[in-house]
Amino acid sequence: MAKIIVVTSGKGGVGKTTSAAAIATGLALRGNKTIVIDFDVGLRNLDLIMGCERRVVYDLVNVIQGEATLNQAMIRDKRTENLFILPASQTRDKDALTPEGVEQVLNNLKDEFDYIICDSPAGIERGAQLAMYYADEAIVVTNPEVSSVRDSDRILGLLGSKTRLAEQGKEQVKEHLLITRYNPHRVDHGDMLNLNDITEILSIKLLGLIPESEAVLRASNQGVPVTHDDDSDAGQAYADTVSRLLGEDVPLRFHEAQKKSFLSRMFGGRR
């Protein structure tokens, strides 16, 4: 039985799709059969980040409307075994998704996969609510700035009330906090909120902290999830995040500013 995990944030541009791709890749690299679904109908991006945009024929909306089968729409990742992508439609809008259709798709995937990662659209409307509705766990992606934190707070409120688990009243969606674009130097200068402020306001458990990194931009543009770049700080941070998601106890990294050594300052040594 697959675990359904939604990657959501409220605010746009904080790194939901990057994180969904990186985490799904990380899970698959460790032998879990994983599918990542793009719920951002009309603004599809996941296929670009995963580097499979040229192989999209059918999409989630086609499957829901019965125009294609799941097997026709699923794209097998070229780099990682066990990893599949279900892209969103670029030509439709979010009203093309129905709760029944989404449930049907998830039910069909549940037996075959270990993890289903739902990449939520930004906002708190229908699309975002559908992406989170059937989730068992949620990864709330937040940037270290006030508006992002407030939107995440709003999303956490919805996770506690507008999901199937919440409506059944039995258990809660398990909530994880993922802070992205964290720059310890700018935090020290007071330009960014610090880790403790964010966790205090949102009061949920920290799953991971991804440093602001050139590797992320490079990965997006090359269409290779940053998890594959295991020399980079962001790649390692996502690997740590996946470990914690799998229940391992991994110490937090990249949250403190590194003092640059004399030599690296002299030669501008940068990774």
Partner: peptide
């Protein structure tokens, strides 16, 4: 949390936690 409204239409309201 942000966007939530908690009310006690009759009597006092006690919140054990943060009001964001």
């Amino acid at each position: 949390r942000s966007g939530q409204q908690i009310s006690a239409p009759e009597g006092d309201l006690v919140v054990v936690g943060a009001v964001n």
